[in-house]
Structures are given as structure tokens and as C-alpha cells.
């Protein structure tokens, strides 16, 4: 699929995903060793996106399982279709009485029914959920288990079998082993630490905020038609904002949103007023915005040459939530 680490980097880039060597190395290893990858990192750095892009780059359909509190095996692995079973017993009533014909005792009847009961617990009556689907699919898939930290600790136990042996056991039928092994990505925001058993079965990838150069390239790919100078200014300001002690540090998705907003506003130069007006795109807490505004003039003088800023200009009051 991918021949070298460089291949991974190139193929992902073709899909519009700029990544560093580290990410490429781990993706390459995951494909090569057929091991799941646990992707961690702050929100909005492209963890889920990575899985989607790898699926696209390798031409595999993506099977996605979104985790949440209370997710159980019936929703993640498989479920018996009770109503279908019920319906079938109704429809097949006559057939059943045919089977029962000539039985003399209750015991004999029960035995005959017992011989048939596997009919009602066959694959026909199983509703495959994402995990089983990914395992039994004839063509190779990419499986994304999103926000696995939101699921309950018990749910992790279900995952272990899938992740280490790529198989699912249904007690009534037996074991479904994977025809082709899927590439598995698990993403986590670190809301809860995953169990060691789960971690042991995965490769670990920590995606951090990108450095300036990577972020510039991301913007160029994601928001085409933006002036190179503006891109550089936006990125350098974002990098500085991340240095502040904020409640929610802005990440790449915010950078992209902001760049799009600036593009929509037809902005060509990044000046202080513009930043203040559009800040609600980047920062999501009132306290953060206040803090950033205090620091803004200091950061801006470094972000743009002094000529571009307009010192002494009256600052218009920021309208609340204009861009939310």
C-alpha cells in the first residue's frame, strides 16, 4: 500500500493533509505491522482527519464508530434482530408444526425444536454494527474509533479482542475472523486515560500543534487563494497566541476557520482592528478573548511591520458573537 515513509507523506499530501515525518512514520508502521494506532493530542489538530485521509489515500472505505458515554456492544459490535426473529417464527408457524408432526411427548417435541434452533441464531438475524462490519467486510477497510476516551471503561474490554486478533466472538454462532485486516485508528482527547491493556495493543501517536512552517503549508492547501504574506502573518500570530495561558488553545481548525473568515472579509493586511473584530473565530471563551486583546498590540508589532499597524486609532467596541 505504502512503500516507504516518504510515500505516506506524499500520498497524504495529495489528499490535502500536510503532516510531518513523525506522523508518516507511525502511519507507515501501522500499515506494515497491521497494528492499530492510538492517536492522541489536543482538540482540533486533525486526529480524525488523519484517519479519513489515510482511508482515502489507501482507497479503503472508512468505517466509523463514534464513541460516547453508554455505548455498548449492541451498538458497536452486533445485535440480534429480535423483531425479525419474532416475525420469522410467526411466518414459519406452519413449517414448525410440520416439524412437530408425529411427536408423541413434550420431550420429543422440545428435542426437535432444539435441533432447529440454530436457524434463529444465524448470521441472518445479526445486525452488524461498525466493528463487526469492519471485520467481516470482504474488501479491506479503514476503521476509525473516534473519541474512544468518551466511552466507558467496560467498552474498552470489547475492543481488546478486535484490536489484537481482529476477530469478534458471537457466543451463539462462533468467531468471525477478519478476512482482510483493517487499518484501525483510535482517537482520544485524553479525557480519561486508556487502560494499559488497550495501549499495549496499539502504536501511539501524539499529534501536537504544528510548527510554523507546517501550519503555513496547511493553510496554503486548505485555503487556496490567500496572499502569502497574509498567510505568514496569520500563522505567526496563531503561534504566539498558543504561547498564552488560555482556557482553550486555538488549534489548526481554528486557524483554517479564521483564514476563511479573513478571505470572506476580503482582508489583505492583518491589522489590529481586524484581528480584534474577528477574534471570536479563534477564541471560544470570553476570558481568553480579553486576555488575548491585552497582549495583542505587543504580539502584533512583532507579527507585522510597524507601518501596517495603526497606532492611536480609536478601537471600536467589539461586537459580541458577530461571527459565531
Amino acid at each position: 500500500m505504502f512503500e516507504t515513509v516518504e510515500d505516506v507523506q506524499k500520498d497524504l499530501e495529495k489528499q490535502g493533509y500536510i503532516c510531518n515525518r513523525r506522523i508518516a512514520t507511525v502511519v507507515y508502521l501501522a500499515c506494515k505491522l497491521e497494528k492499530p494506532v492510538l492517536v492522541e493530542g489536543p482538540a482540533g489538530v486533525g486526529k480524525t482527519e488523519l484517519a479519513k485521509v489515510v482511508a482515502k489515500a489507501s482507497g479503503r472505505p472508512l468505517v466509523r464508530l463514534q464513541c460516547y458515554e453508554g455505548l455498548d456492544e449492541a451498538k458497536a459490535l452486533y445485535e440480534w434482530e429480535y423483531s425479525k426473529q419474532l416475525l420469522y417464527t410467526q411466518i414459519l408457524k406452519e413449517k414448525i408444526s410440520e416439524v412437530m408432526e408425529g411427536t408423541k411427548s413434550l420431550r420429543e417435541a422440545a428435542e426437535r425444536v432444539g435441533k432447529q434452533d440454530s436457524v434463529f441464531f444465524s448470521e441472518q438475524f445479526i445486525v452488524p454494527r461498525p466493528l463487526l462490519h469492519a471485520i467481516t467486510s470482504k474488501e479491506p477497510t479503514a476503521l476509525l474509533i473516534d473519541e474512544v476516551d468518551k466511552s466507558d471503561p467496560e467498552f474498552e474490554a470489547f475492543l481488546l479482542e478486535v484490536l489484537s486478533d481482529f476477530q469478534v466472538t458471537v457466543p451463539e454462532i462462533g468467531t468471525f475472523a477478519a478476512v482482510t485486516r483493517p487499518i484501525v485508528f483510535l482517537t482520544s482527547n485524553d479525557a480519561r486515560e486508556m487502560s494499559d491493556a488497550l495501549k499495549r495493543r496499539c502504536l501511539h501517536l501524539w499529534i501536537d500543534y504544528p510548527d510554523e512552517e507546517v501550519e503555513r503549508r496547511i493553510l496554503q492547501v486548505k485555503v487556496p487563494g490567500m496572499d502569502a504574506k497574509l498567510v505568514a502573518d496569520v500563522v505567526s500570530l496563531m503561534q504566539k497566541l498558543r504561547g498564552l495561558d488560555l482556557k482553550k488553545t486555538p488549534s489548526i481548525s481554528e486557524t483554517i476557520d479564521w483564514a476563511r473568515a479573513l478571505l470572506a472579509l476580503n482582508a489583505s493586511v492583518l491589522d489590529e482592528d481586524l484581528v480584534k473584530d474577528t477574534m471570536s473565530v479563534i477564541l471560544k471563551y470570553e476570558a481568553d478573548i480579553r486576555k488575548a486583546q491585552q497582549e495583542l498590540s505587543r504580539m502584533m508589532t512583532k507579527a507585522t511591520p510597524p507601518a501596517a499597524t495603526a497606532p492611536g486609532m480609536p478601537v471600536p467596541p467589539r461586537k459580541k458573537g458577530t461571527l459565531h
Binding site: 515513509v5 512514520t25 493530542g41 502504536l203
Partner: peptide
């Protein structure tokens, strides 16, 4: 085994992905 370890960074990342599981 799956990688060439001539590149120090790749070597570092490969070890990190398999040995270190906590941010």
C-alpha cells in the same frame, strides 16, 4: 525491522510509537 534505521529521526519516532503510550 520494517524500517530502515539509518535515519535517526525515523528510528526515534518508531521507538516512540511503540514504547511510549502516554502524552
Amino acid at each position: 525491522d520494517a524500517l530502515s534505521i539509518a535515519d535517526r529521526d525515523v528510528f526515534r519516532d518508531a521507538l516512540r510509537a511503540s514504547l511510549v503510550k502516554r502524552g
